[in-house]
């Protein structure tokens, strides 16, 4: 393993952001439908479910799924 300054920075940042309690992808998925409805209703899902918000910020795969879910739900709402 070789560390360049950029990699080192990313590594330190990601360690720095580590919270004692973070949920994993499965727990995030378990609550994602509720989170999405709060967002679509203009309520604040981040306040209601901060651990889900934190996971979505930190996990690209779950975030990608969440964004696609919002897009799908909006399309249905608009009767696309």
């Amino acid at each position: 393993m070789e560390l360049t300054p950029d990699i080192l920075k990313s590594l330190i940042k990601s360690a720095q952001m580590a919270a004692d309690h973070e949920i994993g992808c499965d727990e995030c998925f378990d609550e994602l439908h509720e989170f999405a409805e709060l967002e679509l209703a203009g309520k604040s899902p981040a306040e209601a479910k901060p651990l889900v918000k934190d996971h979505l910020d930190k996990c690209g795969s779950c975030r990608e799924e969440y964004q696609a879910l919002l897009e799908a739900l909006r399309a249905i709402e608009n009767g696309n």
Binding site: T4, L11, D57, C59, S61
Partner: peptide
């Protein structure tokens, strides 16, 4: 903010790498 699929963006090495830098790398 991403920490999971952290990727290395633009791998440029600054010309004036400080002396401390290699110490930090070693520590980590």
């Amino acid at each position: 903010r991403e920490v999971f699929s952290l990727t290395v963006a633009g791998n440029e090495i600054s010309p004036d790498r400080s002396l401390h830098e290699s110490d930090l790398v070693d520590k980590v």
